[in-house]
Simulated scan of single mutants.
Amino acid sequence: MAQPARKMVGPEKLEPELPDRSRKILDLLSAGMDSLEPSVIQNLVGNLVRLGEIADEFSRPEMQALLREVAGAGSSLRGLIAEIKELQETGTMDALLELGSTLQAMKDSLTPGVVAGVLRQLVNALAMLDRIQAFRGDRLVEGMVAALKEAVGENKDKSPQGLLSILRQLNNPEARKGLSIFASFLQKLPAHLN
């Protein structure tokens, strides 16, 4: 049999002698590789190529900057994770998810007619607030609230008054004026409700 042509300049160099343990490991790896089927080797090589591509992605300056940012934000991320865990443990997360689902269902159910109706009501409410403001209704409401607070405070620890005592209070000009305004209001209300 012919041997391949080799250019021999000196004595043939042999592989360096490996320690016994290294030789056994090398023999084991070699035996393992020899026992693999071609499809397994092809899959292994494909995974190694993908691993090399991933390593290449991680070596890009943008990726390294992102990794440095993530490392710097570690304490913030830990805090966020703790907050989310607490929300899950207290059941708040479930409530928030349910609220989100409800809002999404409401959003999905909005039709042009519904939107137009809501906008019409909003415009009417704004017009009414404008009329109240022009009439100085804010002062009227504040006055009513203040008078109610004062009346409740005056009668808090008192026993209920008798009918004659209430009628005697009508002799007070301020009480009669308030009652007249209220009676006039009651007379005019039905016309505005129709």
Score class of each variant (00 low, 15 high):
49 V>Y: 06
49 V>L: 03
49 V>P: 03
50 R>G: 11
50 R>S: 08
50 R>P: 00
50 R>I: 14
50 R>E: 08
51 L>F: 03
51 L>M: 05
52 G>R: 15
52 G>Y: 06
52 G>P: 02
53 E>C: 00
54 I>Q: 01
55 A>D: 01
55 A>R: 01
55 A>K: 03
56 D>N: 06
57 E>A: 13
58 F>R: 14
58 F>S: 09
58 F>K: 10
59 S>T: 01
59 S>D: 12
60 R>M: 04
61 P>N: 02
61 P>E: 09
62 E>L: 10
62 E>R: 12
62 E>K: 14
63 M>C: 07
63 M>H: 01
64 Q>W: 03
65 A>Q: 15
65 A>E: 15
65 A>W: 12
66 L>E: 08
66 L>F: 11
66 L>D: 11
66 L>S: 06
67 L>A: 15
67 L>C: 09
67 L>K: 13
68 R>P: 01
68 R>T: 11
69 E>P: 02
69 E>M: 10
69 E>C: 02
70 V>A: 12
70 V>G: 07
72 G>E: 03
72 G>M: 12
73 A>F: 06
73 A>W: 06
74 G>H: 13
75 S>Y: 08
76 S>V: 15
76 S>I: 12
79 G>Q: 13
81 I>Y: 01
81 I>H: 00
82 A>Y: 04
82 A>L: 11
83 E>G: 02
83 E>F: 01
83 E>P: 00
84 I>P: 10
85 K>R: 11
85 K>V: 04
85 K>H: 10
85 K>C: 08
85 K>A: 09
85 K>L: 07
85 K>G: 08
85 K>Q: 08
86 E>R: 08
86 E>L: 05
86 E>I: 00
88 Q>T: 14
88 Q>L: 15
88 Q>K: 15
88 Q>N: 15
89 E>M: 00
89 E>P: 00
89 E>D: 04
91 G>H: 03
91 G>W: 03
92 T>R: 06
92 T>E: 13
92 T>A: 11
92 T>M: 07
93 M>W: 06
93 M>Y: 05
94 D>K: 00
95 A>P: 02
95 A>D: 10
95 A>M: 07
95 A>C: 04
96 L>E: 07
97 L>S: 13
97 L>F: 15
97 L>K: 12
98 E>I: 09
98 E>V: 08
99 L>V: 04
100 G>V: 00
101 S>H: 03
102 T>P: 05
103 L>I: 03
103 L>P: 03
103 L>A: 13
104 Q>I: 11
104 Q>D: 02
104 Q>W: 08
104 Q>H: 12
104 Q>L: 09
105 A>E: 03
105 A>R: 05
106 M>I: 12
107 K>C: 07
107 K>H: 07
107 K>R: 10
108 D>L: 13
108 D>V: 09
108 D>N: 13
109 S>Q: 14
109 S>F: 05
111 T>D: 10
111 T>N: 11
112 P>A: 02
112 P>V: 02
112 P>Q: 01
112 P>D: 09
112 P>R: 02
113 G>K: 06
114 V>N: 06
114 V>R: 10
116 A>Q: 15
116 A>L: 12
117 G>P: 01
117 G>E: 07
117 G>V: 02
118 V>N: 12
119 L>E: 06
120 R>T: 10
120 R>H: 07
120 R>D: 11
120 R>K: 15
121 Q>T: 01
121 Q>C: 00
122 L>A: 07
